[in-house]
């Protein structure tokens, strides 16, 4: 789909009153995050990268989202979200087993590695996991649908939407403190909010969005 918010960049507001110091600090850290290579095997990381690319494609014409870096940091912490489905092992072990199983599933179905599948093959395979319809016995007692719905999918989408590029692409206002919003009624925006393309205004959105801040 065409870029709905051409020219809009949440980061342009970084030095305005919409961002407080704490926000600047944590977002700067996140943007600078690189993918750890000391975690999981190379193959597991390649599998995870491919899964991320299929589940949350990069935004068009914007700085890439480093969802993998953020997710790897989470796996490194091996913490919790506050709950663990009773059929799943702990965070890191869950990824190690699940990613291995995806790889084996690809081999069983296509005779090749998951990260070497073309896009539609990878999507079909992920859909099968989503439905719990798998053929590799590498899954063991790890239920594929639960691994997908309780671990892989929520982790990946939430890592992706923790990135400012993703916020810009969806026209989200982004950080807002100390400055919040004044105009909160429908079809109204503050000058520090994104303009949506073809919203009927005379000035093109791309030009207005240059001045958002």
């Amino acid at each position: 789909m065409a870029n709905r918010f051409p020219g809009y960049d949440v980061l342009a507001k970084r030095d305005t009153l919409s961002w407080n110091d704490k926000t600047r600090e944590v977002i700067a850290e996140r943007l600078a995050m690189s993918e750890r290579s000391d975690l999981l095997s190379d193959r597991q990381r390649a599998t995870l990268r491919t899964a991320i690319d299929r589940i949350v494609p990069q935004p068009e014409g914007r700085a890439p989202v480093n969802a993998l870096a953020l997710l790897l940091a989470k796996i490194a912490d091996d913490g919790s979200d506050g709950h663990r489905h009773h059929q799943l092992p702990g965070l890191r072990a869950c990824y190690e087993r699940g990613l291995d199983a995806i790889e084996e599933e690809a081999k069983a179905r296509h005779g090749t590695s998951f990260h070497l599948l073309d896009g539609s093959q990878a999507d079909l395979l992920l859909s099968a996991i989503e439905r719990g319809d798998v053929c590799s016995n590498a899954w063991g007692d790890l239920p594929p649908a639960i691994f997908w719905g309780w671990r892989l999918l929520p982790d990946i989408v939430s890592s992706y939407y923790a990135h400012p590029s993703a916020w810009s692409a969806m026209g989200f206002g982004g950080p807002a403190s100390p400055r919040g919003y004044v105009r909160i009624e429908g079809d109204r925006r503050d000058p520090w909010e994104a303009v949506e393309a073809d919203d009927g205004t005379l000035i093109p959105a791309a030009r207005q969005n240059k001045h958002v801040g």
């Binding site: 009153l17 403190s177 100390p178 400055r179 919003y181 004044v182 503050d190 520090w192």
Partner: peptide
């Protein structure tokens, strides 16, 4: 208001 006069673009209106 939050941000005081520094945040005048919001606070003058709010």
């Amino acid at each position: 208001n939050m941000g005081g006069w520094r945040n005048w673009r919001q606070n003058l209106l709010a």
